[in-house]
């Protein structure tokens, strides 16, 4: 009996120690590289969204769910991440469907031109935050670069144990729970860096999107159909990197074949009212909060009119209204704080 007890202790204590170490050493992304915290944040939200938005930085910096609520009463969430690849968007959609079924899925198509995973760092920021499921496993398998291993995703300690020297107060403070860094997936930027000039677009040898990206774009369209979800493809507003006509044509053709909507918001910049001297924080690559709000008003109007999305601002569900009122109040507080900081920093 004693031997069995001792044996159990000898196993359990190391496991607990390793678990604690893993909690300590895994990056928290709370104050620096916040993009790494966004995917996990979704699981804390109330999963009652009419619109799910998927894609790379062009969604989480260019669209504001708080604005879509304030102007149209649309409930939305952005499951965006840095350099999110098309198959990663697919698996995030699968993952989200485990919790809720939105009426509309909006997918940004910039990633269609990216045939391969760029680096482990970007993979980690999209995948590590997902809860365990088949979707996460498949996303890892499809995304891993040459030097990555499945075991390091299953046991992140294998990957992060060398972070000893980088540990900070943040690692201890947020060992169990990290604070929200976004408003329903929107990462606010308040700087202003106007577009003054752009590098010329370099002719490419091959404009064709990869077979794998088409395969996953098809899978996204099919999954949406199976769940009676309207799929809307968008190209978010930006002036860099260059979006080639050949890419535009392929997306238009795909949308036509699949019978889904495609909105090129970059082409609609004027109609949206985007002023590239004021509404971008990085020379036209992404919107700042002013540009994101304009884009959101424009997009929300289209989604509501085209898909009869309910205006929940007068909903009978008072809890929902309270939830969104709190969210928008926090959003405006953050907006005000950041703008004041920027003003005083001038």
């Amino acid at each position: 009996m004693k031997k069995i007890r001792n044996g159990i202790i000898a196993v359990v204590i190391p496991v607990i120690c390793l678990y604690l170490l893993q909690c300590l050493l895994t990056p928290k992304y709370a104050t620096d590289i916040k993009e790494g915290a966004m995917i996990a944040e979704y699981y804390n939200s109330n999963k009652n969204h009419d619109v799910l938005i998927l894609g790379d930085c062009e969604v989480y910096e260019n669209i504001s769910p708080a604005t879509m609520w304030e102007n149209n009463g649309i409930t939305s969430y952005i499951r965006g991440s840095a350099e999110q690849l098309i198959w990663q968007s697919y698996y995030l959609l699968e993952d989200t469907l485990r919790y809720e079924t939105p009426k509309v899925v909006v997918l940004n198509v910039l990633a269609m031109q990216q045939a391969e995973a760029k680096s482990e760092a970007y993979n980690r920021m999209t995948i590590d935050g997902m809860k365990w499921s088949k979707a996460k496993l498949h996303s890892i398998q499809e995304s891993m670069t040459e030097k990555e291993t499945l075991s390091s995703y299953i046991f992140p300690l294998l990957r992060y144990h060398s972070r000893w020297s980088d540990l900070s107060f943040e690692d201890v403070s947020y060992m169990w729970k990290t604070p929200n860094v976004t408003t329903n997936g929107y990462l606010m930027q308040t700087g202003v860096r106007p577009v003054t000039n752009l590098p010329k677009a370099v002719p490419l040898a091959n404009y064709q999107f990869s077979d794998r990206n088409y395969e996953y774009l098809n899978k996204i369209a099919q999954l949406c159909k199976e769940h009676h979800i309207e799929l809307v493809l968008i190209k978010a507003p930006s002036v860099f990197p260059h979006w080639y006509d050949e890419w535009e044509e392929q997306i238009q053709n795909f949308a036509k074949e699949q019978g889904v909507s495609y909105l090129n918001l970059a082409k609609a910049s004027e109609e949206i009212g985007i002023d590239y001297t004021q509404d971008t924080y990085d020379y036209g690559q992404h919107m700042n909060v002013f540009g994101a709000e304009k884009t959101s008003v424009y997009l929300a109007d289209i989604l509501q009119n085209r898909y009869n999305l309910q205006d929940h601002r007068n909903d009978e569900n008072k809890q929902l209204i309270e939830q969104w009122n709190r969210l928008t109040a926090d959003y405006h507080m953050e907006r005000q704080d950041k703008l004041s900081q920027a003003e005083s920093g001038k």
């Binding site: 390793l18 790494g36 482990e120 760092a121 294998l158 990957r159 992060y160 144990h161 060398s162």
Partner: peptide
């Protein structure tokens, strides 16, 4: 066990 992981994760994913 931790030490046995060696330098498997030396390249910093956060960079």
């Amino acid at each position: 066990m931790l030490a046995a992981c060696g330098n498997a994760g030396q390249n910093n994913a956060g960079s």
